[in-house]
Every structure is written in C-alpha cells, then in structure tokens.
Amino acid sequence: MTGNIIQLDKNGNLKHFLSTEGLSQSLLQNILDHAESFASVGERHVKKVPLLRGKTIANLFFEPSTRTRTTFELAAKRLSADILNLNISTSATSKGETLGDTLRTLEAMHCDMFVVRHANSGAAHYIATQVSPHISVINAGDGRHAHPTQAMLDMFTIRRHKQDFTKLKVAIVGDILHSRVARSEIHALNTLGVLETRIIAPQTLIPKGVEELGVHVYHDMDAGLDGVDVVMMLRLQKERMQGALLPSEQEYFQRYGLTSERLAIAKPDAIVMHPGPINRGVEIDSSVADSDRSVILQQVSHGIAVRMAVMAMTMGRSPDDIGETE
C-alpha cells in the first residue's frame, strides 16, 4: 500500500512520513541521529529552536488520541511552528464536508504540513496523494496499517540503551493482529538489522502470513522471552476486540501478562517497553511497569524528539525538490 516512492522526493529526501516500510537503513538511522540532536533541545533553558518559524502544521485527528496528538503538538511548538488541532470527527465532516474540501480549506489557510490520525488503513497515504506539492503529510496512525513515528521512537529508545541493533533479540508481545505499532516496529527492526524479532501472542491475535515478515512466532510466553534483550509489550486493544478472540482479561494476564518472574527469563539487562496507555494487570504487572527495567516514560520523552526530527526532515526541502517553479 505504501510504496516508498511517495515518501521520498526526487533527491531521496523524506517528503512524507507514512510508513517505516520500504525506507532504507541509512534513512532510518538518519532520523535517529537527528532525533538525538533534538533531544538535547528539551534539556535547555529555552526548549525551542527557530527551525520551523513561520510554518503552520495541522493536526488532523479523525480518531481520538491524547498522547500522540500532544507530543506532535509539543514537537511542532519546540520547532517554533504554529499548530492547529482539528478534531475532525466532531467538526466539518459531521456537517457533510468531504475530505477533499476539508483539505482544500486547510490549504487555503496556508498550512505546510498535515499530521493525520485515522481509523482507516491507508488514510494518510491517500491524503498525501491529494495535497498540493508543497505540503508534507505525517502518518500518526492509520487503522491497522502503520504508526511510523511510534516505531521510530521505540527504535530511538532501543538504540539509546543497546546501541548496536545487529546483536539484539527483540520480542513483541500481545495483540499483534490489531496493532499498527507492531507492524511498523517489525519493518523498522528488520531494516535496522536486528538479530531476531519474535512475536508472542495467542493464535487468535496473530495476523495470517506474519512469518513472511521474517519474525519468529511464539504462543508460549516463557519460551518466547528466553534470552531476549528487548521486550515490547502491546496494549490489549479492548475497544477493537470483536468477537470472542480471548477468554477473559484474567486468563490473558495469566498466559501473556509480563510479571517480574517472566521478565527474569529474558536477559538480565533486558528493557521493557510499551507504547501506552498501559492496562495494569492486563498485559503488564504494575511492579514491572514501575521497575527500573521499564523505559516506558522515556519512550514518551523520546517521542517528542523523534517527531521533531521527522517534521524538520520532511519540511526542510528546497522548492527544486518539490518541483515547484518560482
């Protein structure tokens, strides 16, 4: 669905950021390198740089989100851009305006970037094909398809703790079937060259054909966690759950919940990650979520730096790259 052609301009620079799939290792590393630089901005006296001064960014959220929207907002503000927050589900479209008209309206307000969250897979990609050439689109999560900035902030967190991806065994645990985060993570981990990616979940929460992505599938938590360096927990997406995919939350926790006993099976220095919001006692035990092995809150801070990097990289293009004539 997301060829990398639309994501890159003719010089191979990032124009839209829609998916981690199809991007080169050097480009992903470049995002992480820039994010490292932007991370230091958050520790300053003035937590702001003038890079995107005069640019306008619209957060188009067709699906509710607090964490992702606020970190995008903060990232934009730290780059000195102006940001509009549009909760589309409760505004124009409910009055009958088409998506195309909404986009034209925002373009008439001289927006330079759209950050898109949508319940339908492929929505951000579709919008990227519809906007004027000077506008960049960032996917902030589309259906079950992709959530590339979440995946990159996870990669940033892993790199900060483990440096070299090529020696790592990474386990992704939980609701892989409904998770756009898991998909984006698997593509990023593959591209960055990890030693092994495992997914651990009951059969009912694993999408068909997932082995084709090069991951090893485990249904037993203890076997899957054996010797891993990174444990990435996923939220049990209750609101997406249709039909009887699971017996009960209690039984899920018994079989797939991350407890300190289970974590002891992983490497002694293994880190625990979670994209949030966490369901304590459903997929992760409180004692693990609050332990010194947990890097969950660091992931949130890193999210701002990674989103700053992606915004700056997609916006920093000359008119030549976009194909405009002046």
């Binding site: 740089v49 003038p50 990289m313 920093g316 000359s318």
Partner: peptide, 21 residues
C-alpha cells in the same frame, strides 16, 4: 551545532551535522 539556527533551512533543508550542542 548551529544547524537548528541557520537561516538557509527553507532553501537547503536540515544540515547534515547532527551531533548536538
């Protein structure tokens, strides 16, 4: 590292120098 403060960002893009100040 003055990359974030350069006045040629809109024409040249993000400077490749990435190590933080």
């Amino acid at each position: 590292n003055i990359a974030f403060y350069r006045d040629d960002f809109s024409t040249l893009g993000l400077h490749p120098e990435v190590s933080p100040s």
